[in-house]
Design a protein around this nucleic acid. Structure first.
Lengths: 195, 195
DNA sequence: CGAAAAACCGACCGGTCGGTCGGTATCTGG
DNA sequence: CCAGATACCGACCGACCGGTCGGTTTTTCG
């Protein structure tokens, strides 16, 4: 079972690294820190990954896969466009706030440290997602026969901005929590502050 | 004019440092980089600032002052609440996108590197701003007699998120530019995607 | 003009960083 | 049980980082 354990090790390293990167930031976290948190030496850590860059890239890639599986996947099965958008908002918020998935926050925050070649690959996947949201919004507007003073593109960026920014201010012990954040942000998207 | 030139020097250093921090990130920019960009030696740079921390803190402080002067100041003179909010949205977007004010982007992105004591002071000023927006939204909802399914607090975070996130995707050469971004985001805030 | 103050230089310091490498322990399949 | 592969260790490397300091140039102003 060499193959399996190697994959498992890599996954566990990525999980721990993602946690540390989110807590202290990528640059402020040394490979020694990551190794120590795994009760490993730095040399041992380099047995599994070639570079710090590779770890960050894999974390971000994993984050995109999580988005694919936990947001896009479920959402695509929903027929009604409006319900599809509502679900996307809820699932996206849940993924951003999930304490299990620190990869997402790392992906949202740490683009700079990635070397250009790898960053381009991540950005390409991000663009796909924006396009999906844009198309979904356009579909909702069409079915509702909206005159559409807000272009789907601008609306998509606005929607993703308000959700992706959550990690900057969210405190689990605060008054705004997942269960009341989701309905309120959903209402905001559909009707603004005057709904 | 010793006093004046010293202040000017500091301001110029802050401007250059902010530019570099925004382009390469705070951690990836060394004090040598900053000094070189100013045609200065590292020793000469340390004649004006005690530490890299201090520079980052001053940049962020400056960013808050810019917000105060260019957004809150003008906005306060407007009597009508709805018009006040519309102006705030426009001015805030313009400040985020202004190529002159890189301090804003640095403040938005680089909270982690700041040492806790200084970070708390910046966060306090940020909170004030959120409160102001929250109050303004509440006022608009009151004058419009909205039943208010979206709390002013959630709406304020949504509004600030969609605007503060702009720096993550905005490209000056893209199809979405300041002049069409402002009206569309404004519409989005007041009426969501169905307006 | 001249002296004090401000601005600046560049060599240097301790420390840490990402990454390497030769060797050892541990595990696995025959 | 043994041999080969895998996992891991820990000492080490060169580079660079933030920051210091003694000395030199430039500016200011009486």
């Amino acid at each position: 079972m060499a193959r399996e354990t190697l994959i498992d090790s890599r996954q566990e390293i990525l999980r721990t690294a993602a946690r540390l990167f989110q807590q202290r930031g990528y640059d402020a976290t040394s490979m020694n820190d990551v190794a120590a948190a795994l009760k490993l030496s730095k040399g041992g850590l380099y047995h599994h990954f070639q570079s710090k860059d590779e770890i960050l890239f894999e974390i971000m890639n994993h984050a995109m896969e999580i988005t694919q599986e936990r947001v896009l996947g479920p959402v695509r099965t929903i027929a009604d466009p409006e319900e599809r958008l509502r679900s996307l908002i809820r699932l996206h918020i849940e993924v951003v706030l999930s304490p299990r998935d620190r990869e997402i926050t790392v992906m949202l925050h740490e683009n700079h440290p990635l070397q250009p070649a790898l960053r381009k690959r991540i950005n390409a996947r991000k663009k796909e997602y924006v396009h999906f949201v844009e198309g979904l919004i356009a579909e909702v507007q069409r079915t509702r026969r909206v005159k559409g003073s807000v272009s789907p593109r601008a609306a998509a960026f606005a929607l993703l901005g308000m959700i992706n920014w959550i990690y900057q201010w969210y405190k689990p012990e605060g008054e705004l929590q997942t269960h009341n954040l989701v309905p309120q942000f959903t209402e905001f998207v559909f009707g603004g502050i005057l709904s």
